[in-house]
Design a protein around this nucleic acid. Sequence first.
DNA 1: CGATCTACCTGATGGC
DNA 2: TGCCATCAGGTAGATC
Length: 278
Amino acid sequence: MPELPEVETVRRGLADRVVGRRVERVEVGRERVVRRTSREELIDGLSGATIMAANRRGKYLLLPLDSGDEVMIHLRMSGQVLHAAAGSARPAHTHVVMYLEDDTEVWFVDPRTFGEVVVFDPERVGEVLPELAGMGVDPVAEQFELRPFRAMLRSVRRALKPLLLDQHVIAGIGNIYADEILHRARLRPDRVASSLDSRATRRLHESVGSVLSEAIDAGGSTLSDAQYVDLMGAGGSFQNDHRVYARAGERCVSCGRGWIRRTVLGGRSTHFCSVCQR
DNA sequence: CGATCTACCTGATGGC
DNA sequence: TGCCATCAGGTAGATC
């Protein structure tokens, strides 16, 4: 569920409401969400520590602690991070509870338990989180330059959408935003990357930046199932600006001529206008 | 190298 | 109403 804009919205909530606070106590329900290490390592690593910052790389939340360790939270498909007054009623599937010094609690909630929480020593990041080393550029948190992007596109014979979804190439884009970015760039999801001319490359580069930043400004996308919410439990509004995602059968509002089609590409549901995306 | 399939889980939805 | 199949925002690993 959550992609870069949703994770960034959660990050900002943590920066505003949780950074600088001390974690007094931690409870772990289902061990599966701490499978990367163990229940004991999470509890020992977090108890008594103060959260010093809230960072993000792609869809990974990274929270440095005053101990020198770091917390990683990944929401995967159905994870939520919520912040509430101490003693508030918790949703089902609340697997981690952090009791903060200011009588508030941070909850990690995840029905499908694909998500995870881990405390690790940054010096051992390569052992605990080896995937971080191979992550591509974060187009919001880092410099996302046109030139290397163009060189990468020219060098691969892959369809654009699976390429945008590949976290080794660009970190943070998921299924919704891949479709929205390609629509804005007027490029078909199955178009081969190396076939783009320099104008198309520029449109794609600009669309990556503009779609993601507009989605962040809107607080992310909350679909009808309301699975994604921010730290306070509020939904985002970018779903109202989706032009293709979950709009199969509707008239394309960009060109006014085509209809939005739904196909499957790389095993993912894919939405595009066959008239204005080429 | 790249495409495809599977697995990991639970809940919502739609058809019959 | 109930039962069953299908699908979901992510990612890693196996296989061809």
